[in-house]
């Protein structure tokens, strides 16, 4: 059974040099309460793995602005000037990963795979330094699985088993990241009793969830 903790307790679990998967797409489906607390802790040298580095004032972008990120794997950083500036100055080392590749590399880890073969990026700088394979006459790049210490994700509701349901376009990367870290922390708007969620509507089964944080709990 996952443990229900506060966002402050969640942030305290994170240590320097941890590799963290952050769910969300341009802050939609992003665990803002946990990020609030993480900004307060000021824990540094984190490795950020996310679709985008969001905005300077919202989402994971705040961790960049607060100089807490040492390195990152992102598919888009155009919405956050601080990420760009810190990348140019050498403060942050960024690997830019095509979005579909990023998702499958994360999913691969959770699914016990060493990596994936994708046609995305063949003939571009993305293939540099990577092995290529020809399968049935088509060229693929080997993209290795991405591991992480923590996944910090957002769902709409959890039951006390950690079964999760999402809301609209706030689902995005969250169910993928839920599978793939050593420890998964989910922020939810509502925690319900076991049996209140229909097994048919559950997107992420509770086996992946270690900690549940209720949004808006006293910090």
């Amino acid at each position: 059974m996952p443990k229900i903790i506060s966002s402050k307790e969640a942030a305290a679990l994170i240590k320097p040099h941890n590799r963290i998967l952050f769910g969300g797409f341009l802050t939609v489906g992003c665990a803002e309460n946990i990020i609030d607390e993480l900004v307060k802790t000021g824990t540094k040298d984190l490795h950020l793995i996310a679709i985008a580095s969001d905005y300077e004032h919202k989402g994971v972008g705040r961790l960049v602005v607060n100089n807490q990120i040492k390195s990152a794997q992102l598919s888009h950083l155009g919405t956050n000037k601080s990420t760009q500036a810190q990348m140019n100055s050498g403060q942050i080392e960024v690997e830019i990963v095509p979005q579909g590749t990023l998702m499958e590399r994360i999913r691969a880890k959770g699914a016990g795979l060493g990596g994936i073969l994708t046609p995305t990026g063949v003939g571009t700088v993305i293939e540099e330094g990577k092995e290529k394979f020809i399968v049935d006459g088509k060229v693929f790049i080997l993209e290795k699985a991405i591991s992480a210490d923590f996944a910090i994700i957002k769902a709409k509701k959890a039951d006390k088993h950690g079964n999760l349901v999402y809301s609209k376009t706030a689902r995005n990367s969250n169910p993928i990241m839920a599978m793939s870290a050593d420890i998964t922390i989910v922020e939810v708007d509502e925690i319900v009793e076991i049996g209140e969620l229909s097994p048919e509507e559950i997107i992420t089964p509770g086996i992946f969830v270690d900690y549940i944080v209720l949004s808006g709990l006293p910090k």
């Binding site: 797409f25 939609v28 579909g100 997107i203």
Partner: peptide, 30 residues
């Protein structure tokens, strides 16, 4: 606030739409 497109703009959903996760989305694409 939970209904955006890939550019971050607000959208609506048509009747018969489906929400998907990012891996499913790129399975459709790739």
């Amino acid at each position: 606030p939970e209904m955006i497109n890939a550019g971050g703009g607000f959208i609506t959903a048509i009747s018969g739409s489906a929400f998907i996760d990012s891996a499913m989305s790129f399975a459709i694409i790739r």
